[in-house]
Amino acid sequence: MTTIINAPAVTAPQELDRAPRPRRRTTPKFTLGRAMAWVALGAVMLITLIPFYWMLRTSFSTSTSLGSDPGSLLPVDFTFGAYERVLGLATPAEALAEGGSGASINFWVYLRNSLIVATVTTIGQVLFCSMAAYAFARLQWRGRDLVFSAFIAALMVPPIFTTIPNFVTIRELGLLNTYAGIILPTLLMTPFAIFFLRQFFLGISREVEEAAIIDGAGTLRRFFQVILPLGSAPIVTLAILTYITSWNEYFWPQLVGREEEVRVLTVALGVFRSQTPQGGPDWAGLMAATLIAALPILVMFIFLGRRVINSIGYSGVK
């Protein structure tokens, strides 16, 4: 782990994206090599996108008809039926007739739960980890290196190892099937978040903070008025990554939050998957459900696209 601790100081890749890049002297010539490279990149994009299209195509098909034309590129026997039964707008009898089970996805409740869990986790984790990272990067105190090493050591622990005792803890606290139970283990800190932010905070110019000290600013004010604004790029990056991770988390919430009232979308999907009708999976319904579950994060991506993409690159260079 020493490598990570001694990781080189940070460059900000945002700069690389924003700064005018030296243009190539000539527009690239058409060569066979470039054409083949474009074909390869096109193939990658196609493989990436096909499953999304297939979700869409299948979700508008009639489940019982899918077998008659599995290779059809268009929906088989077009219908909104899958969405109706998944969203609980169809009666169990109607659902059954179309190859579904009586199960539906209580979409708005699960969406609310996913939003609450991901938002609270993100805000808490980013705030508390920023604070800790600040103390590790900018403040002098006895025990700092010891505590930091302990935190970093936690990076090495495979999550399954802490999952069992954490489940016991949450259970003994009576927090099974509560938001708190789902959120708590990642609310206050993750080793990665602290390590990540500390790297960036180490790089913030000392002069600005010293100027604030001369102005008589206390630690708290320096943190909020100097460090947070200057560190906003990595903080936003961390927030986006945390949000995506938290939104997609399945293992922990399916252990402690299966109850309807706190069930998040991923868990709901797992439950829906096990609600297989007698005949075999209701593929159209399942694909409609997956698409519905994926939709919120895809919408977020549309609005925050550039920001998210930069974040990924940003997180890598450290």
Binding site: F52, I244, N248, E249, Y250, T290, I312
Partner: peptide, 12 residues
């Protein structure tokens, strides 16, 4: 496009 799959859950 290339990073799109990362946004959706493993389960999906």
């Amino acid at each position: 496009v290339v990073m799109l799959p990362y946004l959706i859950a493993n389960v999906i």
